[in-house]
Computed example of a mutant assay.
Amino acid sequence: MTNGTQWRSWLDNDHWFNDLPAALQDSLLTGMRQRRVTPGKLIIKRGEPACGLYALLAGSVRFNDVKQQRHWLSPQTASKRPYWFGEISLFDERPRRHDVYAQDQVILLHMPQAPLDHILDHNPRYWRMFRQLLGSKLGLGVPARDEMTLLPTAERVAFRLLMLSEGYGELDRSVRIVSVHDIPSSRCLGLTPDVIERVLTDFASRGIIRRDHDFISVLDSEKLRRTARHRLTQLLA
């Protein structure tokens, strides 16, 4: 059994993968590499450039807390396998925000960034599928990359906070703490620091977030999601 055939059997029951065009499925199966990671070993290093797309097949992972004071764990049994993560970097083009470690014996499929970028550069229609993957975690539609800065100011900041706090979905949803230094993004925001600060102050006054020096705690993710709603963030069909 070739790797592609074996991996396809693992992905047979995955709704997102099975809805992809056959050519994109084949490109991912060809480009992905299997990684087996032993407990405690690093999978993603905080601050490193975007490093591609991952599919968690077995085991669980843990994330360093943004304050580096404690860890939080992924569920021992994810709601579904595979669990895809890492696609957020396709949209914000920012360095990785967390150290990600194997909590136990982990099996991953990893699609490196360079071949993934190549596929998307040559097949722009495929962006929609990755927008759907991220949108399923955020509970909102994800605008096309060249439309993100068309959102009104408050909606734009709210959407950015959702990307930062819920971009990994259920894997790190137990704690919603964001470093203020991670918010700026020319692709996602295109706003000056003064404007961002003014919006954050308004969100704090409305009980959506709490400021703690350089950190932001998301207190009400549903209110934040409602604030981010716009015609460009309607869920994709």
Rank of each mutant, 00 (worst) to 15 (best):
S27F: 01
S89E: 10
V199I: 10
D182W: 14
I209K: 01
F91Y: 03
T149R: 13
V37I: 15
R173V: 13
R176A: 09
P193K: 06
R94P: 04
S205Q: 14
D214W: 10
A144C: 06
H110W: 11
E170T: 11
M111Q: 11
K137Q: 12
K45I: 08
V180R: 15
A158V: 02
I177P: 04
G31L: 10
R176W: 03
N123G: 05
D65P: 04
V157Y: 01
L133V: 08
Q113S: 13
M148A: 05
L200G: 06
M111C: 15
A50F: 13
L200S: 02
T5W: 11
Q76A: 14
V100H: 00
E93W: 08
H181W: 10
D99Q: 05
P75R: 07
P124C: 06
V218T: 01
S165A: 15
D65M: 13
H98G: 06
S205E: 12
Q68T: 12
L232I: 07
R231T: 12
K41C: 08
D65I: 05
I119V: 13
R46H: 10
D220M: 03
L138N: 01
L151W: 03
P152C: 07
H15V: 15
W10Y: 15
E170K: 04
D19Y: 10
R211P: 06
L151K: 02
R229F: 04
D194I: 12
V37N: 01
T227W: 04
L28K: 01
I208K: 01
I43P: 00
R211G: 04
R160P: 00
R226T: 09
S186W: 14
R145V: 12
I43M: 06
Q234C: 07
G139I: 08
L151E: 05
D26K: 12
H213D: 15
F215E: 02
D214Y: 10
T5N: 14
R225K: 11
K67V: 11
R210L: 11
G40F: 07
F17T: 03
H98P: 05
Q25I: 08
F215S: 03
A204F: 00
V37K: 06
D99H: 13
I107T: 15
V218A: 01
A55V: 05
L28D: 00
T227P: 00
E48Q: 15
L133R: 02
I177K: 12
P143W: 01
R160F: 02
A204T: 09
P124D: 05
E170M: 06
L219P: 00
P39Q: 09
S79G: 14
H118L: 14
K41G: 06
R211I: 10
K45M: 08
E222L: 11
S136A: 15
I216H: 00
D104A: 11
G207H: 08
L189F: 06
L236I: 14
G59L: 05
L219I: 08
L29G: 04
P124W: 07
K80P: 01
A50W: 05
G169F: 00
L24D: 01
A78L: 15
N123R: 10
L116C: 09
M1G: 13
E197Y: 07
D212L: 09
D182P: 04
T5Q: 14
K137T: 05
D202Q: 13
R145I: 14
Y168D: 06
G52E: 03
P82A: 07
Q76S: 14
G169L: 03
I177C: 09
Y54E: 03
R160G: 04
S174V: 15
Q25T: 09
G167K: 00
P75V: 11
V218G: 00
R81D: 06
